[in-house]
Every structure is written in C-alpha cells, then in structure tokens.
C-alpha cells in the first residue's frame, strides 16, 4: 500500500520517466510476494477455506512456485479473478502468473500473447443434469435451458456442439460458479455445463450430490494449465519447470516425505533425482534460482500425485479419478521433459 501510494505520488509529480520494465523474477523477488491469479472460488481447485486460507489444486501450483522462487510457500498474494478479469490482470502485470483452470487454446496463446507453461489438468467440457430428468445423453438436450459460465471456452464449445448436432438450447450466461449453483439447484436451468472437473467440484458442494448426474459426453478438449505473459521467457521457464518438477517427482517417486532425505546427499544410483534436487549439476542456477529450488517446491505439498489426491482425488469429496491425468507410466498423458 505504502509503495503504491508513493508510486502514485511520483506519477502525479510526473517524475517517473522511462522506467525500464525489469524482469518478472526480479519484480517478484523485490516485492517478496508472488501475485497469483486464481478463480473466485471453485472448491478443490481454488477456494478460501473457513479461515480465509486459499486451498486447492491450482493454489498448490502457486505455492510451489512461490516456494521455489522466494523460499516461502506462504508468500503468495492470491488475486481472485473472474473469466472477464483474468487475462487483463495478467497482461497488465497485476498478477505474475495465472493458475485458474484456463484452457490452452491457439488464440489465447497467439492472439492474446500469453505463454502456457504446460498442462496441469487434462479436462473436457461436460454436462450435469438433475437425475430426475432422466437424460442419458447430451444429444437429448434439445430445447433445454443451459447455464454456462461466460468468458470461458465452454461458451463457444457449447454453441458449436448444439449447432453441429442441429439442436436448440437456451443459454443462461452466468459470471461465476457461485452464482450458477443456486440457479441450477432451483431449476432455473436444466443443465449446467463447464469443465468436467468443475462439474465434479460443484456437484461435491451440493447437499445431495447423488441427485445429479454428469452426462457421459465430453464435448471438447480442455487442457488446463498455468500461464504467464509473452516475452518474459526466464519467468516462463521458472513456472514451467516448477510444474515439470512436480510431475517428474511423481514419476521418480520423490514425495514430500522423502524429499528432504533424498536432497541431503547425492545418490549415484538416481542421477535424475540428483539433478532435480540440486545435489548434482547446476539446473537451479540456470533458472536464476539456487540449487534447492525444486526441493522447496516439492516440500510444500508434495509431488503432482500428492497434490491431486489431497485436493481433488478420489479420497476427497470431489472424487476425481486420475484418468488422463495419470503419469504416462500409468497410461495417462502427464509427461515431463527430462531434467538434464
């Protein structure tokens, strides 16, 4: 606050001339906190708990980056963003990275000038309907009233899907997931559509989840991932490789429990773990961080599998199966480039 007041004063005085934009990494280090854009509240992915602490799958990525860069997983300022504000917040520098179930698409990458650093969740758009309607396929939805979250790719997929199948529908656009919930529950719309993971999370928050079914059709590819601004590749690399470190750690069996042991001394039998944890090689320095960066990132909430299980996995209320999001060694799509 104080800093911004002074900047405002400087701006008024017209003193600040051509302030060269420093790299995001330097900004974050100077500020001491990471500004991370998250959704305004989607249980399991990013939502404040009863104490106002942000929890969730996307939140964990932010914390891992903060731990890697700043050494403190709590040095994150979570900025809730809606579908409307997320891209401007990132483009204008209000946030350093966006981890808000954002679908990686061509136009967002190329036209909006963002850099998707990877995929942390392979998703697809699905439909949820009350079980009592007895609908078994999305193709039966002719004439239905559909609640959609505006500003998302789901809105466009939906239009395409219904047009392609030659059936009609009545869209009810809604700004946030929180507002969609009561409308759907009260029956103001027959169908709620969003990413399948979001449907599961929403359904889990219902009083009686079993009264609602998620239809089998998945009508789109929705690779969700964190993103940063174009043009700052050093920062992009840090976020990308922090995410890759989480994925690789699962593959290599590094967990939050054993990361400290493994990082204590280099084990000649596992060279890639050594490189990852900085006991061998200089990967951390190449990133502009220190050797321990991945150790810190992994100590926060563990590797990808642990984060998944803690927040959205089958043991939680949301109960998502790994499915496509299993490591490639288990038949999923998660595949991190090697740490070398």
């Amino acid at each position: 606050m104080k800093k911004s007041v002074f900047i405002g004063a400087l701006a008024l005085a017209g003193v600040s001339g051509g302030m060269a934009a420093a790299g995001t990494l330097d900004d974050v280090k100077a500020r001491g906190t990471l500004n991370c854009g998250v959704s305004t509240g989607l249980v399991g992915f990013a939502a404040p708990d009863a104490n106002g602490e942000w929890q969730g799958f996307d939140v964990a990525v932010c914390r891992a980056v903060a731990a890697a860069v700043l050494g403190d997983a709590s040095a994150v300022e979570f900025v809730p963003t809606t579908g409307k504000t997320r891209f401007t917040a990132l483009a204008s520098g209000e946030i350093d990275m966006l981890a808000r179930n954002t679908t990686w698409t061509f136009s967002r990458d190329v036209d909006l000038k963002f850099e998707f650093v990877g995929v942390n969740y392979y998703d697809g758009q699905g439909f949820m309907v009350p079980a009592e309607l007895g609908v078994s396929s999305a193709k039966d939805l002719d004439g239905a009233t559909v609640c959609i979250q505006t500003g998302t790719t789901t809105e466009l997929n939906l239009a395409d899907f219904f047009r392609a199948n030659g059936i009609s529908y009545e869209p009810v656009p809604i700004e946030t997931n929180a507002e969609a919930q009561p409308l759907y529950l009260e029956g103001a719309c027959d169908v709620y559509t969003t990413d399948a993971s979001g449907l599961a999370a929403t359904r889990a928050a219902f009083e009686d989840p079993s009264a609602h079914v998620v239809l089998p059709e998945i009508i789109s590819k929705e690779p969700l991932g964190p993103l940063v601004r174009h043009g700052d590749n050093e920062w992009g690399d840090i976020v990308r490789w922090t995410l890759n470190a989480l994925i690789t750690a699962e593959e290599l069996g590094v967990t939050s429990d054993n990361v400290a042991d493994k990082a204590a001394a280099a084990d000649p039998a596992t060279p890639e773990i050594n490189r990852l944890l900085g006991t061998e090689g200089t990967l951390g320095e190449m990133l502009g961080l220190d050797a321990q960066w991945a150790v810190r990132a992994l100590s926060v909430s563990g590797n990808y599998a642990e984060i998944f299980e803690d927040n959205i996995g089958e043991s939680t209320a949301i109960g998502l199966a790994r499915g496509l999001n299993a490591s490639y060694t288990d038949g999923g799509l998660l595949y991190s480039p090697p740490f070398r």
Binding site: A21, A91, S92, L112, K113, E155, L156, L158, A159, D160, F162, R163, Y169, E170, P171, V172, P173, R229, H230, G231
Partner: peptide
Amino acid sequence: AAGLDISFGFLSEPAGYDINQRLIEYTSQ
C-alpha cells in the same frame, strides 16, 4: 510490452457465442 495493439478488427469476426434474447436475427456465426 504485452505485445498487444489497439484494433477494432475483432468486430467483424464471428462471435461464436449464442444470445438467448435477440430482437434481430443472430446466430453464433
């Protein structure tokens, strides 16, 4: 810095979304 520009060209591109209440003809195209 963000690699953007100001242009109104988007106005002539297909919208891609549907509107429920329309007084004139409109499709997602």
